[in-house]
């Protein structure tokens, strides 16, 4: 579903992303790991068409992001880092706006997807509340609801469980897992257990390069008996 080949993004003379290559198939949940500033978010922004790569290309469902950005964006549900949303709108208005842009033109056709997204992310108690009055956990769920709204074949989630309490984290993880059967999912995270809990593949990125691309089991097998964060530290030493 997602194919990324030799993506490069430079800021000035710094190569934030330096030749990242991987593929994600339908049914995959890819965990994107790496220290802060390693290039995780930048890679995701290039896949979703927000940033243009300096070299390399990304295709989603066989469509080149650079050639047909609007078509690709229609297939992706994207949760940007820190879940931005228009603060003055209520949850319902905001999701209605997203639905309208996603092609649900009439108020009637919008109701079903908006209700579904609200139910999936348990936003019902705050649906009439404006986004700026929400707690961090609710804001994060609004971002998730927005990404799931059109039931996209591809989900790109930048730190989806950031700001959630342990129970909510669990719930979001099982939600992602339950949906992943017919989707391709990329999620970035700082939390190593999350990879164990949801992902069936791990990519560790360090200084803009992919240093690991394997299953969580293979990652564990690198240093039997060691904790995941020790393995992670050894692999990303260059970033410190």
């Amino acid at each position: 579903m997602i194919e990324v080949k030799g993506l490069v993004k430079t800021y000035g003379h710094k190569r934030a992303v330096d030749g990242v290559t991987f593929t994600v198939k339908r049914g995959d949940i890819l965990g994107f790991l790496g220290p802060n500033g390693a290039g995780k978010s930048t890679t995701m922004k290039m896949i979703t068409g927000f940033l243009r790569p300096n070299a390399g290309k990304a295709t989603v469902d066989g469509i080149d992001v650079a050639e047909a950005p609007v078509a690709v964006k229609g297939k992706i549900g994207y949760l940007p880092e820190s879940a931005p949303a228009y603060p003055e709108m209520t949850v319902e208005e905001f999701l209605g706006f997203i639905a309208e842009i996603r092609g649900f033109r009439t108020a009637e056709s919008r109701r079903a997807p908006v209700d579904r997204a609200i139910n999936l992310t348990h936003l019902a108690p705050v649906r009439k509340q404006s986004v700026e009055t929400l707690s961090k956990g609710f804001k994060q769920r609004v971002g998730l609801a927005q990404a799931l709204l059109h039931d996209p074949p591809v989900l790109v989630l930048d730190e989806p469980t950031d700001g959630l309490d342990p129970n909510q984290k669990n719930e979001v993880r099982s939600l992602i897992k339950s949906m992943a059967v017919e989707k391709a999912v990329i999620l970035s995270t700082h939390i190593l257990e999350e990879v164990d809990a949801v992902c069936n593949r791990v990519i560790i990125i360090s200084q803009g390069k992919v240093v690991v691309d394997e299953t969580p089991e293979q990652l564990r097998a690198r240093q039997p008996g060691a904790r995941l964060d020790e393995i992670f530290r050894n692999l990303t030493r260059g970033d410190i």
Partner: peptide
Amino acid sequence: RSGTVELLFTLPVT
């Protein structure tokens, strides 16, 4: 400033 520009330009709009 608020980052919603990223949301807007990852929606299928030109």
